[in-house]
Design a protein around this nucleic acid. Structure first.
Lengths: 112, 112
DNA sequence: ATTCTTTATCGTAATATTGCAATATACAAA
DNA sequence: TTTGTATATTGCAATATTACGATAAAGAAT
């Protein structure tokens, strides 16, 4: 159906999935990397760095903003985007929970 | 177009995005959480835990397997899935790089 | 006021994803 | 060999995503 049965899953599962999904596109990964590299939020030149049309970039930024991974504030003419470290920390911790602490069989064993 | 211009982006960007995308669905998040909770790869009962039809679960497992996040080995009749900690570690490190080290403006400043 | 610059929105075509019923495959058990 | 159990594949309908041209909106600069 193309629609996930998000009603069943928990709030946490849905939010985590939404954030991961937002990052699950090379253009958005590239945007994040660029913003971090700037180490400041003097922005507006993302379009020059990524070979996608301006409306497309705007759309990708919107998606990253929607899940809180980046923030944008109006600065006169331009808009100033920067990464929200809190969300990244949350993501990193959530991913860390996917590491099995005491996995009974290691990936090289006969089982896995 | 629905097709990302993945030719432009680097191998790393594409691979990272693919892994994040694979996790970007609540059902697949739930599968990962279940596999980790098992702390062993005695599997086969994922279908009982997640309210999706067996072919749908199989498809989700296939996607997680395709990016290497999980591994499955045939164990007689059933198939034994378990998490690949290496890939999780890779992901966690990659996400960590999204944290701005010396961001010139903090999210509460006038800028961001 | 007009023009330029920057970002957002709308509309839309191409493609991808999600979900499942039906069916296939593969091994185990009887 | 037949039956049962576990997983995969196929086919398809519903929906979502991606990309971009055209256009709008909003402030800056002249």
């Amino acid at each position: 159906m193309g629609l996930s049965k998000s009603d069943f899953f928990s709030e946490e599962q849905n939010e985590l999935a939404a954030m991961l999904k937002a990052l699950g596109h090379p253009a958005r990964v590239a945007i994040m990397q660029f913003l971090v590299k700037q180490s400041s939020c003097i922005c507006g030149d993302i379009v020059d760095v990524i070979p996608l049309a301006q409306p497309t970039i705007s759309q990708h930024l919107k998606e990253l903003k929607a899940v809180g991974l980046i923030q944008g504030t109006i600065s006169g003419n331009a808009i100033c985007y920067c990464v929200n470290p809190d969300k990244i920390n949350f993501l990193q911790a959530a991913i860390g929970e996917f590491i099995p602490l005491n996995q009974a069989c290691d990936p090289n064993s006969s089982c896995c």
